[in-house]
């Protein structure tokens, strides 16, 4: 197995996903198959090749630092699952 169930569980935790036993089996099999295929990249010699993170490289996309219209508090909170007195409400952290 390319990726073990333990690794799937670890990665799911990093990604904040709760996955059940059936999905752990399914994902480790499917992701293993994908990783086997991805491993064909190792055949390519990339010594000294720079990485591309964007196909059209732009640097320093500046714009004027000017006050503009922005979403107000009400619009920003309009989709909040829970809110109170102009703030987002979340369950206890600790």
């Amino acid at each position: 197995m390319k990726i073990t169930k333990e690794e799937v569980l670890h990665v799911a935790h990093l990604a904040r996903l709760d996955i059940d036993d059936a999905d752990i089996d399914r994902f480790s099999g499917q992701i293993g198959t994908i990783l086997d295929y991805v491993d064909t990249l190792r055949q390519v010699d990339t010594t000294g090749i720079a990485a591309t993170s964007h196909a059209v490289n732009l640097t320093n996309a500046f714009r004027e630092d000017r006050v503009q219209d922005h979403l107000g508090q009400e619009a920003s909170l309009a989709n909040a699952p829970e809110k109170d007195d102009g703030t987002f409400v979340v369950p206890k952290v600790l």
Binding site: V38, L41, R42, V44, T46, I49, A50, A51, T52, S53, A55
Partner: peptide, 10 residues
Amino acid sequence: KASQIRTLIK
């Protein structure tokens, strides 16, 4: 590795 191969494809 994939980002380097992206350069080669480009």
